[in-house]
Amino acid sequence: MGDANRMVEIEVVSSERLYDCASAVWGSLIQPLRHFNESAVIDGFTGKKILLADFSSYLIKNKCQSFCIELANGSVEFSYVADKGFYRLDIKRLANSIDVAQSLIGALIDKSGFVQARIYDAEYDRWQNAESLTLFEVECVEHAHLPKKSNGLPFPLTQEIVDISKNPGRWIFRSSYIEAVGAFMWVSKSLLKVVGVDEKTLMDVDCFAVEDLGGVLKIAAYDQCFTLAVGAQAERQALLRKVLFNA
């Protein structure tokens, strides 16, 4: 896939106390999403078409705690990860540049309960976290060179899967946050406390540009989204993971 066609995707994590209902998070996104000039959206759960202007009242009326909407060939999904105790907002196939992605994240970082956000390359993230050999085979992607392991399930569910545990672009759900890296990240100072990271240590990494936004640090770890699991990009991802998550 050529760089011109690559889509920048957005992941935002927030704690339970941030939103009492999905309408509040949608309310924060209305302004930046207006740039896409959509008059209507599709409710991804029901397939119902709803006017963009009416979506907030639709969420309130239906007491929605989560939502999935489709617009401008992309989607915005907001859901609660109950066993890990956080909300996750995914904005997919909407931002065609890092600048657009940053404007969407900018609408959310000053809310109390914001935990973290990252901008990442969709295709790279997908293959860095793909474990199913069937997926590789269906899409004719070579996997013979990749490390394998058992999925750990008892017979007859046992299967061989790709071992992604050393992939620089892997992500892991942790209690109250996601261990994942992106070339552009926003991390709350409360998250740094949770993972036991000293703010100064992060600020002092020469190859990162770190900006203090108050309760949040913005980290530019590379000049474009990561798309490679080797070389300088792999080293940068490993350093970011080590400094941020002690991993």
Rank of each mutant, 00 (worst) to 15 (best):
K92L: 15
K92M: 14
K92R: 15
R93N: 15
R93H: 11
R93Q: 14
A95W: 05
N96D: 15
N96L: 06
S97N: 13
I98Q: 04
I98A: 01
I98D: 03
D99V: 11
D99F: 11
V100A: 12
Q102P: 05
Q102N: 13
S103V: 05
S103H: 14
L104G: 04
L104A: 03
L104Y: 02
L104D: 04
G106F: 00
G106A: 10
G106D: 08
A107V: 01
A107K: 06
A107E: 02
A107I: 04
L108F: 01
I109N: 02
I109F: 07
K111P: 00
K111V: 01
S112H: 09
G113E: 06
F114K: 05
F114V: 06
F114A: 01
Q116V: 01
A117F: 00
A117C: 04
R118H: 09
I119F: 02
Y120V: 06
Y120Q: 00
Y120L: 09
D121Y: 10
A122Q: 15
E123F: 07
E123R: 10
D125Y: 12
D125H: 15
D125C: 05
D125S: 15
R126H: 15
W127M: 12
W127N: 07
W127Y: 09
Q128Y: 02
Q128R: 05
N129R: 07
E131K: 14
E131S: 13
E131N: 06
S132Q: 03
L133A: 00
T134N: 10
L135D: 11
L135N: 10
F136K: 08
F136C: 00
E137H: 01
E137A: 09
V138W: 13
V138Y: 12
V138D: 12
E139A: 05
C140W: 09
C140P: 02
C140T: 08
E142K: 15
H143N: 13
H143C: 13
A144D: 11
A144F: 10
A144R: 14
H145M: 03
H145A: 05
H145V: 04
H145L: 14
L146I: 06
P147T: 03
P147W: 10
K148A: 11
K148V: 11
K148W: 09
K149D: 02
S150F: 08
S150G: 06
S150H: 01
N151L: 08
N151E: 00
N151D: 12
G152S: 07
G152R: 05
G152M: 07
G152Y: 10
L153Y: 13
F155R: 12
F155K: 11
P156N: 05
P156W: 12
L157Q: 11
L157I: 07
L157A: 08
T158H: 09
T158D: 13
Q159E: 15
Q159N: 11
Q159F: 07
E160A: 06
I161Q: 02
I161T: 09
I161F: 08
V162C: 05
